[in-house]
C-alpha cells in the first residue's frame, strides 16, 4: 500500500524564490501556519491525570476511541491528503505550504499518543488502536476520502481534503470541548484547541485554492464539481451520523454532537465557496460548547437585538500609524 499511496512529483523542480510571490495568499498562510507552530510537549498534560480518574469507565473508553479516530484522520491527512495536493500546486509556494500542512498533521497525530501515554495504560491504548482498525464507520470514513485522494481530478482532491479538515474531525473534537466545558481534561482540551486552530487555516487555504482553480473551469465542470461536493458531503454525512450514534448514544450526547456536525458542515461548505445549508435550528450548538471553543463566541455580540439605539459615534482621537499597534 505504501508505495502506491501518492504519485510523487515528477515535473522539473525549480529553486523556490520567496521574493517573487505569485499569490500573496501563499505567503500570508505560510506566515500564519509557522507562527501557529506548536508541539504537544509544551502542554502540561500530566495535570489532567487527576481529572481523568474522575471519568467513568464508559467516558474513558469513549475518549480513547474518539482520539484514535482523530489520530487516523490526522495520519491520512499528513501522509496522503496534504501530500497528494502537491503535484497539482500552481506555485512553488503553494507546494511549500502543503509540506507545512502535512508535517503539522503528523504533529497532531503524535499529540494524541502523548495524551494516551499520559492518561492510559498500554493495554487500553492497544485496545483503542485495535478498535480503530476494526470499527466499520471509521474505516468507511477513511476509505471514502482515500478513494478521492488517489483519483485524477485535482479539484475533487481539494474538495475531499477540505471536507476532512473542516467537517470530518468534528464528531471527535466535540468530546474534549464537552469535557472542557465541565472543567475536565482542560490541558487535553488546550491541545485540541491548537489542533482546531490549525485545521481552520488548512481548510481555509485548501478551499481557497479550490475556488481559484474552479474559476478557470467551464460552467459545466463547475456545476459537476458542485454536485460532486454535495454528493461527497452527503455520503460522508450519513456515515458521520452512524459513527456519532455508535460512539455517543451510550452517554446520551448524540443529538448535541449532530448539531456540532451541522454547524461545521456549513463552515466546510463556506471554505469551498458554497452557501451554508443547515438552517439555524439544526446548528444551535450549546453555548457551553461554543464557549469552550471560543470564549468570544458566547458573549452577546448581537447588538442589533439588544436595546438598539444606544450606539455612540466614534470619537476621533489623534491617531497615526504608531498608535495602531495591533
Amino acid at each position: 500500500m505504501m508505495s502506491e499511496k501518492v504519485e510523487l512529483l515528477h515535473h522539473h523542480v525549480e529553486a523556490i524564490n520567496w521574493n517573487r510571490i505569485q499569490d500573496p495568499k501563499d505567503d500570508e498562510v505560510w506566515d500564519r501556519l509557522t507562527a501557529n507552530f506548536w508541539l504537544p510537549e509544551k502542554v502540561p498534560l500530566s495535570n489532567d491525570v487527576q481529572s481523568w480518574n474522575t471519568l467513568t469507565d464508559e467516558e474513558k473508553d469513549l475518549t480513547m476511541k474518539v482520539f484514535t479516530g482523530l489520530t487516523l484522520l490526522d495520519t491520512i491527512q499528513g501522509t496522503v491528503g496534504a501530500v497528494s495536493l502537491i503535484p497539482d500546486a500552481v506555485t512553488l509556494h503553494e507546494e511549500a505550504v502543503y509540506t507545512n500542512i502535512a508535517f503539522m498533521e503528523s504533529v497532531h497525530a503524535k499529540s494524541y499518543s502523548s495524551i494516551f501515554s499520559t492518561l492510559a495504560s498500554t493495554k487500553m491504548i492497544d485496545e483503542a488502536f485495535r478498535w480503530s482498525r476494526e470499527n466499520e464507520f471509521l474505516q468507511r470514513k477513511a476509505d471514502i476520502v482515500m478513494d478521492r485522494y488517489v483519483g485524477d481530478d485535482p479539484l475533487k482532491k481539494k474538495v475531499a481534503s477540505t471536507l476532512l479538515e473542516s467537517f470530518l474531525f468534528y464528531s471527535g473534537f466535540y468530546l474534549p470541548m464537552h469535557f472542557s466545558s465541565q472543567a475536565k481534561l482542560t490541558n487535553t482540551a488546550d491541545i485540541i484547541r491548537l489542533i482546531i486552530r490549525d485545521e481552520a487555516v488548512h481548510g481555509y487555504y485548501i478551499g481557497y485554492k479550490y475556488q481559484r482553480a474552479l474559476e478557470k473551469e467551464s460552467p459545466e465542470h463547475q456545476a459537476e464539481l458542485k454536485d460532486f461536493t454535495y454528493d461527497l458531503l452527503d455520503e460522508l454525512y450519513e456515515n458521520e451520523i452512524a459513527y456519532t450514534e455508535s460512539l455517543y448514544d451510550g452517554v446520551g450526547w448524540t443529538e448535541e454532537v449532530k448539531k456540532f456536525l451541522h454547524y461545521n458542515a456549513n463552515k466546510a461548505l463556506n471554505n469551498l465557496g458554497y452557501e451554508a445549508l443547515f438552517p439555524k435550528e439544526m446548528t444551535d450548538v450549546s453555548p457551553a460548547i461554543l464557549s469552550a471553543l471560543s470564549p468570544n463566541a458566547d458573549e452577546n455580540h448581537d447588538f442589533f437585538s439588544g436595546s438598539g439605539s444606544s450606539y455612540v459615534i466614534g470619537k476621533a482621537v489623534n491617531t497615526d500609524d504608531e498608535d495602531w499597534d495591533f
Binding site: K267, A276, K280, F303, F304, Y311, I313
Partner: peptide, 18 residues
C-alpha cells in the same frame, strides 16, 4: 474599543441566511 463604537454583530466566514 479604539474608536469607541459598538461591535454590532459577529458572523463566521460567509455568514448564514440568519
Amino acid at each position: 474599543a479604539k474608536c469607541e463604537v459598538p461591535v454590532l454583530y459577529k458572523f463566521e466566514l460567509m455568514g448564514t441566511g440568519t
